[in-house]
Write a protein that binds this DNA or RNA. Structure first.
Lengths: 79, 79
DNA sequence: CCGCATTTACCGCTTTAGCAGTAATAACTT
DNA sequence: AAGTTATTACTGCTAAAGCGGTAAATGCGG
């Protein structure tokens, strides 16, 4: 349950900690500037790959948690 | 770095574990059936809120991880 | 207080996400 | 092997995501 409020706060905090403006972050992530504006305002209809680019630049990891995730990750490692 | 391959595997595994068809999952989540089809195939441009609905039904949590997340979560709790 | 940087909003455009109906294909059960 | 269920693909439609230019509003530093 990706909380949009937490997400927008996290992105803003990490961006400022990295000393970047919204425009700089957008350029580094290779997305349009309106994406960063929208994300930090809590917009919930951003596309996954667009968000992913932002999180990569800010070095934020996303982890899925459930009772089955161990099976999935182990299976992947065995590949 | 939300890995789309992990995500699609996780959704498929959880859906099957819950004994649901793709159509049933889509109905429970309140989204169109093509969303579940696309997600399980690894489509990366699904919208965040659409994905969120799926993850809620499957009881999969999403956690952000970075060196600053503690500050953000603690601040939120203090609100 | 002023100047500059940043953020927010508007614009017009292209592409497509999501929707549900329908059909074809694949998988499963009997 | 046949029937049923599930998955995949196609269709046409609407609304909007994302893009970058531009302008207005806000915030910050000197």
């Amino acid at each position: 349950m990706l909380n949009p409020d937490i997400l927008s706060k996290a992105i803003k905090k990490h961006r400022k900690a990295a000393g970047l403006s919204q425009l700089q972050l957008a350029e580094m992530a290779g997305v349009g500037k309106t994406v960063v504006f929208d994300l930090e305002k809590g917009k919930e209809t951003i596309q996954l790959d667009t968000l992913r680019k932002i999180l990569i630049v800010l070095n934020i990891k996303v982890v899925l948690q459930s009772h089955l995730m161990n099976q999935i990750l182990n299976t992947d490692e065995n590949s």
